[in-house]
């Protein structure tokens, strides 16, 4: 199954909301999880529980400080600003990417597909990846040749915890040996071939 890109939109204007919705429908593998108007209570929490890949937001819809908003959104998500001609530069610069409401369909599609393309590439290593962040870190260090003891010291974990992680990694992946895990890590870009050749 292809990895889906989860999108959240924050915009007050009904016309703009429908417009974005229509635009997103034209992309494959996009999932518009929710549309907010910006006035919802605990907006940040609501957004983060949906684990979005992209948040498209009109800065005018945000009631709190935009700065706080951008910083509080889960850092895995790309925040895309929905801006107009009179949006101030210091606001534009808060966003990783921007979409201009006056742009034509073609330009909008172009910018969106670029943003999504980058997202998908970053997401590719996570395909088939049932491991947690911690397990990934442990896996990475083991496949780079560190012993359990060394991994424990490096990550400030007890050796017992490292062994538990290893056991879980093996159980989840169905791979028992370090060399097998190394192949897995290379195939899934957890590590790079140059890393182990050093």
């Amino acid at each position: 199954m292809a990895q889906k890109i989860t999108v959240i939109v924050i915009e007050r204007s009904y016309l703009l909301r429908s417009g974005i919705e229509g635009l997103l429908k034209e992309f494959q593998g996009m999932h518009l999880a929710e549309i907010y108007d910006g006035t919802e209570k605990n907006l940040i929490q609501k957004i983060n529980t949906l684990k979005p890949d992209c948040v498209i937001v009109n800065p005018k819809a945000i009631t709190d400080s935009l700065n706080t908003f951008v910083r509080s959104v889960n850092n895995e998500a790309t925040v895309i600003g929905l801006i107009s001609g009179n949006t101030a530069d210091h606001i534009k610069s808060r966003f990783a990417n921007t979409l201009h409401i006056k742009d034509g369909k073609h330009e909008l599609m172009n910018s969106l597909s670029q943003i999504i393309g980058r997202k998908k590439n970053n997401k590719a290593p996570n395909k088939n990846q049932p491991l947690t962040e911690r397990e990934l870190t442990v896996l990475k260090n083991i496949t780079l040749g560190l012993t359990n003891q060394e991994v424990a010291e490096k990550l400030f974990l007890s050796i017992h915890t490292v062994m538990t992680h290893r056991k879980n990694i093996t159980k989840k992946l169905g791979i028992k040996t370090v060399s097998g895990l190394t192949v897995y890590a290379l195939l899934n870009k957890v590590i790079d071939i140059q890393d182990i050749e050093q």
Binding site: G174, G180, Y184
Partner: peptide, 8 residues
Amino acid sequence: KLFDLKNL
């Protein structure tokens, strides 16, 4: 290792 290879 054979087991691993099968899963790979």
